[in-house]
Every structure is written in C-alpha cells, then in structure tokens.
C-alpha cells in the first residue's frame, strides 16, 4: 500500500491546512488525560474543577492538547511528516460541550544546513467561538518522494528553529 506523501514542493507560504472540527465530550477530556497519565482532578472531577480552579467544567490537559496539534499536522502531511518543534500558548481552556475547530496556514518553507526540508505552520484552535490556543509548529517533509525525514539522525536532524 502506498502511503500519503506530502513533499515540500507541494506547499508554499499561504497554503492552508484543511479545517478540522471535533465535538468535545467529557470522555474526550478524560480519555486524553488518562492517555497522558495525568491524574490531576481538574481533568476528570467537575466539582474540583469548578470549586478549586474556578472554571466552569473539567478541561483538556496540556499534553493531550499537544497530541491534538500533532494529529492535526500529520493528518495533513501524512506519515512521512516528522514533527520537529511545536510551541503553543493556551489562552483559554477547552471544555466539554464545545466544538474544537483547528485551522492552519503555512508561514514558511526552508531547507536547513543538513538538507532537511521544513514547513512552518501557524495553527489556531477555536473552541466555542473563542480562540483558545495559538500554536506554531515545524514539520520536516520529504524533499522528494524518495526522501524520508524519519531516517535522519544525529547531526542530520536539526529540529530547533533558527528564530523563536
């Protein structure tokens, strides 16, 4: 079976990632927290979240939010896309009963000194109409169909961006 391959020549600054909408249920929050081994009560205990944290419900934990951004990026790139760097700022929490909407745009394309091709993307998570998280990610893409960023090791893998 041939797998989806997004090569770097197929993207350019301004290219948009397909929108992704996900309805958030209590199980979305709890399953995400358990997958991340995050046992803190604000991610599964309504009473604790509302009374101790002063928020309106249980809310998504940080590692699971990172996993959602990873899924969003690699749904777009296919399995040859290799995430190198991600930064996100949480402005508000994600609660059950809302719809998460991920959108993204390519902000830059470059090749590093080791010859690895990169796309930088700006991602926005809007939840219940509020911008809840802003994210920047760098993902390595195959330069051609025969290239595979996952084969890079040691000095051939430089995920840290020049700026930021």
């Amino acid at each position: 079976m041939a797998y989806q391959i997004l090569t770097v020549d197929q993207v350019k600054p301004g290219s948009e990632l397909p929108e992704l909408a996900i309805d958030v249920k209590p199980v979305t929050i709890v399953l995400g927290a358990m997958a991340a081994r995050d046992w803190r009560p604000q991610h599964h205990d309504y009473k604790f979240a509302t009374e101790n944290n002063g928020v309106r419900d249980i809310f998504m934990n940080t590692p699971n939010l990172a996993a959602w951004f990873e899924k969003y990026v690699t749904d777009w790139t296919g399995p040859y896309g290799r995430l190198g760097w991600i930064r996100f700022r949480m402005k508000d929490s994600v609660f059950p009963g809302e719809t998460m909407v991920f959108t993204g745009v390519v902000t830059g394309v470059d090749t590093d000194e080791a010859g690895c091709a990169w796309a930088e993307v700006a991602l926005t998570l809007t939840t219940g109409g509020r911008v809840t998280t802003l994210c920047t990610a760098r993902v390595a893409l195959p330069a051609t169909e025969g290239d595979n960023p996952w084969q890079r090791k040691g000095d051939q893998w430089k995920p840290q961006p020049a700026q930021h």
């Binding site: 797998y3 979305t28 399953l31 990172a66 399995p79």
Partner: peptide, 28 residues
C-alpha cells in the same frame, strides 16, 4: 483519544517501512 489514524502507530508494515519499527508519538 485524538482520533489519530497515522499508520506508523497502527500498522507494522508502515512502521517498518517509514520509521524502522514502531515508535511513540513525539508529543507523548
């Protein structure tokens, strides 16, 4: 939990071909 169908985590053939065997999600 994230509805992630990336075959490198689910299919041995894809994992062997692309990542030299199964790996964990980087974000984990």
């Amino acid at each position: 939990s994230t509805e992630n169908a990336n075959p490198i985590y689910w299919e041995e053939k894809a994992a062997n071909e692309i990542t030299d065997g199964f790996i964990a999600l980087p974000s984990m």
